[in-house]
């Protein structure tokens, strides 16, 4: 470490102060725009939709796009545009919930594992390995089978699936922080482990955690769509992109557009969060200390 920093001071790379590396900016902008679009859809749907997303109309089934039905109707005569708007809420909620659950479990465990590296930490990480070996989607299916399909079950299952990865990242970040002299200085100043974790570790691993969160968000959206498609996610009649895909499958040959829109919506939102995550990683990862 010392050598690296003295090398920097020798002018091989200009000081962090003058030219702070601001990598990943185009990715962050592109990602933010896409995420903002999805977010807007969800917000708009709360106050207004072109038609009722749940009203069926047996006469007007599989209608082509028109002034009344912007994107046409589905097999039950429901307005696709409205369903698409309303359907954006569930993935966002699931993403938020999943990341929340995953971080609430993963971050404390990861930090704990790092700070008690010789004792309890080893056991935490081995337990983590076992959990990680278990596919999150499978866990979700099992939980749905036991408790019945619901958004909450999906969130808990996906959150549990996300937690081991988060714990791993948090642990490696914490180990890095603990190896720095300021962590030693805090110990020498008589500060306990809790203070160390909250005042030194968390702020310094914030960057990599944010990256994890965006990536986790994208995974959660995809997984929610998959679960709904399997009928294990959000139950009807609440609209959801995954369920729209499943409904559309039955009429795929007659009206391919019915699955184009939800498919596109899933793709765009996942792409958005992934781009954002990649951009943030470029900005945060290379050198944690210049990211402020």
């Amino acid at each position: 470490m010392t050598k690296r920093s003295s090398e920097t001071a020798n002018g091989i790379t200009p000081t962090a102060k003058n030219t702070r590396r601001r990598g990943g900016t185009p990715l962050i902008i592109a990602g933010s725009v896409l995420v903002a679009v999805v977010l807007m859809m969800a917000l708009v749907s709360v106050v207004w939709t072109p038609q009722s997303p749940t009203a069926t109309n047996a006469v007007n089934r599989l209608a082509s796009p028109s002034a009344e039905h912007w994107l046409g109707t589905d097999g039950l005569g429901r307005d696709i545009a409205s369903m698409l708007l309303v359907g954006s809420r569930v993935p966002l909620l699931v993403g938020l919930g999943t990341v929340g659950v995953g971080f609430a479990i993963g971050v404390p465990l990861g930090i704990l594992a790092a700070m008690t590296d010789r004792g309890a930490g080893t056991w935490v990480m081995r337990g983590n390995d076992i959990l990680q070996a278990f596919p999150a989607l499978l866990l979700a299916i099992v939980l749905a089978a036991i408790f019945g399909p619901s958004t909450v079950t999906a969130v808990i299952a996906l959150g549990l699936g996300l937690a081991p990865g988060v714990a791993r990242v948090a642990r490696s970040g914490t180990l890095q922080v603990l190896s720095r002299e300021y962590a030693l200085a805090a110990r020498a100043a008589g500060r306990g482990p809790l203070f160390l974790a909250i005042r030194h570790v968390l702020p310094n691993i914030r960057g990599i955690l944010i990256v994890q969160a965006t990536v986790g968000f994208a995974i959660a959206i995809l997984a929610e769509a998959a679960l709904s498609y399997l009928g294990l996610g959000t139950p009807p009649p609440a609209a959801s992109w995954g369920r729209m895909l499943q409904d559309g499958q039955a009429v795929l040959h007659n009206a391919p557009l019915t699955i184009l829109w939800p498919g596109l919506a899933v793709a765009v939102s996942v792409l958005g969060f992934n781009l954002l995550g990649d951009g943030l990683r470029d900005r945060f990862d290379p050198r944690m200390e210049v990211s402020r």
């Binding site: 470490m1 010392t2 300021y182 200085a185 805090a186 020498a188 005042r199 030194h200 402020r292």
Partner: peptide, 13 residues
Amino acid sequence: IIFQDPMGSLDPR
């Protein structure tokens, strides 16, 4: 204690 590396011994955040 005063440490060696004035970069590493101060929390950047």
